[in-house]
Amino acid sequence: MPLPDSLFWDRKDTTGVEHTLVDARNGLYARGTILAVKPIAYTCRYELRTDPGWATAHLDVTTEGAGWVRNVRLELAAGRWRAVTAEQGNLDAVLSAAGHARAGLPGIEDSDQLYKAYDVDLGGSPLTNTLPIRRLELLTAETGVSHRISAALMLLPSLEVVQADQIYTPLGAHRVRYASETFSADLTVDDDGFVVDYPGLSTLIKS
């Protein structure tokens, strides 16, 4: 199915790009590809769907590199997350050969940890920052008032899923502050809430 809009980001934290095709007319449906070289060279392909209120309903992600491939499908239904995983090859061996620590297993062992998480956060992807921005209507919300959320954070390239506490604060003038326990960044977004500039991570170069 052809999608009406396209977003293309250039990575700042590593050599890499992200290209996403989106339909935001009734919630969000997106298909995207991420290419990056750190911690190892990999390709990530994803399909994301939200409900009309921008709460995540479905995320299907595949990462692949030399000698390995992983897939995780996350679905939220009736307030509960379900994760289905698959793995071929040995990502840990590739990471070890490159001098990196072992990867976590794909998915999450106890999906109850994601209770009341309505947003997914695909590590390194500015697209998923749009989900809470739109779900909480932060572009028209009171400036300076913080909104704390619980997110299902999917790490790349391992596809390990962890619960993450995050804070979003509208700053006005199309800026939103994103913060976690150890990090914060002031995001610049467009009229639709898509990230134009994520300091240190990515810049939108074509839409």
Rank of each mutant, 00 (worst) to 15 (best):
M1E: 11
M1S: 14
W9N: 07
D10V: 07
R11D: 02
K12R: 15
E18W: 03
L21N: 08
D23P: 01
R25H: 11
G32C: 03
T33I: 09
T33N: 04
T33L: 04
T33G: 00
V37T: 15
K38E: 15
Y42Q: 04
L48P: 05
R49G: 03
T50M: 05
T50L: 04
A55N: 14
A55L: 09
A57W: 01
A57L: 13
T62D: 02
G67F: 06
G67Y: 08
W68K: 05
N71E: 09
L76F: 03
L76C: 07
A77N: 13
T85R: 10
N90D: 15
L95Y: 06
S96T: 15
A101H: 09
A103W: 01
G107K: 06
G107W: 01
E109L: 02
Q113V: 00
L114Y: 04
Y118K: 02
D119I: 04
D121C: 07
G124I: 05
L127S: 03
L127F: 07
T128M: 05
N129G: 02
T130R: 08
R134V: 06
R135S: 02
L139E: 07
T140S: 13
V145C: 01
S150V: 13
A152T: 08
M154I: 14
S158Y: 03
L159Q: 05
D165E: 12
Q166N: 10
P170W: 10
L171A: 11
R177W: 03
Y178S: 06
F183K: 10
A185P: 03
T188G: 10
V189G: 12
D190S: 09
D191N: 13
D191E: 15
D192N: 14
F194W: 14
V196M: 14
G200C: 06
